[in-house]
């Protein structure tokens, strides 16, 4: 009898990989809602899920306007950063000299807190979209350039030798072998780049305070209204997941073309 009970329990637990996090989230929402119902706290600090939902519904048009603004700017920043980053990564690996001259400087920039220069972009380009997008490009392209350069450098020596033995030109070796071989690295870089572009736009919205979800979050927090703050955070989380999934999907597509699974590069 205890045997069947244990079996049933273990079957139940077998599903817990999916169930456990959902149950946890549900419990969190219920506790959150009831707690605030019986023990009201300052509305500036925490809003009940029902209020957040109401804000999402009632403020839909205005929230959408800001979401769209953030979305477009992130996509612009990311795409520009991808182009600039891949081009720079390819340029610095043209020769040993250029790589040795530029690569350490670019890595150096990866180590310093780049967000700090956000106000400079405001100073140069004003408080509108251009300054935020430029800042996002600045935040994102280093990671992409480094990943591209690393990928291009990492083509196996023997494969390069094969190309040379076939009297392939540098350009042929680059387009037919080195660049495709760098794909896994480039995508690792693009994923980091997407995260950085998001940070760039959001911090830019914090600093410029004109439009976008970052602005809504800032504004709501200083106005002591937490429901719009949480609503904007939710939208931003959804946006982040959607954009990140796009990069993952693109990676999947390229991976299918590539044939072999990408060796996942450790990046945090």
């Amino acid at each position: 009898m205890s045997g069947t009970a244990r079996k049933r329990l273990s079957r139940l637990l077998g599903a817990r990989r999916v169930v456990a996090p959902l149950v946890f989230l549900l419990a969190l929402f219920i506790v959150w809602e009831t707690w605030l119902h019986y023990l009201p706290m300052s509305r500036a600090v925490i809003a009940p899920p029902s209020a957040i939902f109401a804000t999402l519904v009632n403020g839909f048009p205005i929230l959408m306007k800001h979401t769209l603004s953030t979305l477009i700017e992130i996509v612009q920043g990311f795409l520009l950063a991808a182009v600039v980053g891949i081009a720079i990564g390819a340029l610095i690996t043209i020769s040993t000299w250029t790589r040795q001259a530029f690569y350490p400087n670019i890595v150096f920039f990866q180590l310093i807190p780049k967000v700090a220069v956000a106000p400079l972009f405001v100073l140069w380009l004003g408080v509108g979209t251009p300054s935020r997008v430029a800042f996002a490009v600045f935040m994102a392209f280093f990671a992409i350039a480094i990943a591209t350069a690393t990928g291009l450098e990492n083509t196996k020596l023997e494969t390069i030798r094969l190309c040379r033995s076939l009297t392939a030109s540098h350009w042929q070796t680059f387009t037919k072998v080195r660049f495709p071989f760098a794909m896994p690295h480039i995508f690792a870089g693009l994923k980091v780049g997407m995260a950085m572009a998001m940070i760039g736009i959001i911090v830019g919205e914090f600093v410029t305070g004109q439009e976008g979800l970052g602005y809504v979050i800032m504004f709501a927090s200083s106005a002591g209204e937490s429901a719009p703050l949480y609503a904007a955070l939710l939208l931003l989380a959804a946006l982040g997941l959607a954009l990140y999934s796009c990069v993952l999907l693109a990676e999947l597509a390229v991976q299918r073309w590539y044939g072999a699974p990408f060796v996942s590069e450790g990046f945090a």
Partner: peptide
Amino acid sequence: VMFQDSTLLPW
């Protein structure tokens, strides 16, 4: 030339 590794292009 042939190498120890087949150096085939995976794609």
